[in-house]
Amino acid sequence: MSMEEFKDRNVGVQNYRMLDLEPNPETGMDKFKQVVKRSVKLELFTGLKVTFREMFNALFRGEMHTTKYPFEKLPISPRYRAIHEMKRLLESGHYRCIGCGLCEKICIANCIRMDTRYDENQRKEVSEYTINFGRCIFCGYCAEVCPELAIVHGGRYETASEQRASYSTFEDMLTPLDQLAQQSEYPGFGAVSADADEKIKKTPLAY
């Protein structure tokens, strides 16, 4: 592919509408005619009409566009990748994380650190789990790779902090036990799609 083709990509040909502009007047008479036409047609008042209509709509029909941000927030997409959350199992309330360490391995910003050990029942338990949000680039790989849908992205997007490195521990991210009933399944990044049941096929026995 040559450079010319690369540059000429016909961007937006299908979306742009050409206005039927009159040609610029050349002679004095044409200019005069244009002025008279524009004055008599009262084209300027169309502009006044538009702004007044917008003001009327904004004030009396509730079409004000302002969102008073710290007090109201706009809804975000379910696939938005904000601060991580750790989900729990709905039945037992135990955390879903099995300590496989895949998120730590895949993290390209090296911001996840986890330590695991065997508990008294010889089950793997997470002894330490931190995410450094100063490094995290919110790529979403951890949520995608997690086999248990344990680490997911939440909707809290205000990430400003006083320090360059702001750590979040496992307990910070876990759903509190008393709010277990409100824990919703994460529909976003890495989750199974809504119609997964129809799409799935029975695995042949040969495998």
């Binding site: 702004t51 007044f52 917008e54 709509n57 904004a58 004000m64 566009h65 302002t66 008073k68």
Partner: peptide
């Protein structure tokens, strides 16, 4: 007035 005409709230 300018804010209302641009569907904003202005100083609040």
């Amino acid at each position: 007035i300018l804010a209302f005409m641009q569907r904003r709230l202005g100083p609040m």
